[in-house]
């Protein structure tokens, strides 16, 4: 069975039962495949979900960077475009998000859970490219090594936007749009000053060390 088919069946199973299958054994049996076949593709349900979160981020980035207006966009507009496109995609998978997405609001300032590791790496690569674009075009100041902390901070913001969206009960989730619009603007305003550096420093202090190279103190 193909990888994507397994993922598809996994999502369906979760949505219908409101929780992941009790065991890989059970799930494999339902799919009429062997456990070996499942483990050939995924180490665990957690790894399977980690792939889902990453793929959605990756697919969004690919879809927007091929748009014809992309090259003209400033860093600010690129990030906004990512968010708007991402939340359009979330609309198709909202139930799955509500059931399975590890939401940061339940444990603020904690290390993001390991299922989001792949998504984090994917997003941070993208964030670094955005920052590089901004610096190249003079939109953002060049802050040397401090700038290495920005992708991590942007990822935390990304999680906050997802959480906001999942809690949003406005029609057409318009409040999420407003949240993105305002908070991204604030973020870019802050990067323009050193306020963000101080804030990241504080958050990092409060949250302890987190995984990922980006968040290591720059040596």
């Amino acid at each position: 069975m193909e990888k994507n088919q397994i993922i598809q069946r996994y999502i369906e199973t979760v949505l219908e039962h409101g929780e992941p299958p009790g065991s890989v054994y059970r799930f494999a049996k339902d799919l009429d495949i062997s456990e070996r076949e499942f483990f050939g593709q995924f180490a665990s349900f957690e790894a399977l979900e980690a792939g889902i979160w990453r793929d959605l981020t990756r697919a969004t980035i690919e879809a927007i960077s091929s748009g014809e207006e992309w090259t003209d966009f400033s860093a600010h507009h690129r990030l906004l475009t990512f968010y708007y496109a991402y939340f359009e995609k979330v609309l198709d998978h909202r139930s799955f998000f509500l059931v399975r997405f590890p939401r940061p609001s339940r444990q603020p300032l904690q290390t993001p859970p390991s299922q989001l590791r792949l998504m984090h790496d994917e997003f941070c690569d993208f964030a670094r490219r955005i920052i590089a674009t901004g610096v190249d075009r003079g939109e953002l100041p060049c802050r040397g090594k401090v700038a290495h902390t920005y992708p991590g901070a942007m990822f935390l913001h990304f999680l906050s936007a997802i959480d906001f969206n999942l809690r949003d009960d406005s029609q057409g989730f318009e409040r999420t749009d407003a949240y993105i619009e305002k908070s991204v603007k604030l973020g870019f305003d802050l990067i323009g000053t050193s306020a963000l550096d101080s804030a990241v420093d504080l958050v990092r202090f409060l949250s302890g060390r987190t995984w990922g190279k980006d968040q290591q103190p720059s040596a």
């Binding site: 014809e68 207006e69 966009f73 708007y84 359009e88 057409g172 749009d177 993105i180």
Partner: peptide, 20 residues
Amino acid sequence: PLSYPLVVKTFRREFGKGPS
């Protein structure tokens, strides 16, 4: 002002196409 990406999003939602 409203950012251009949000204008684009609004267009896509309303007309299925971007302003351009």
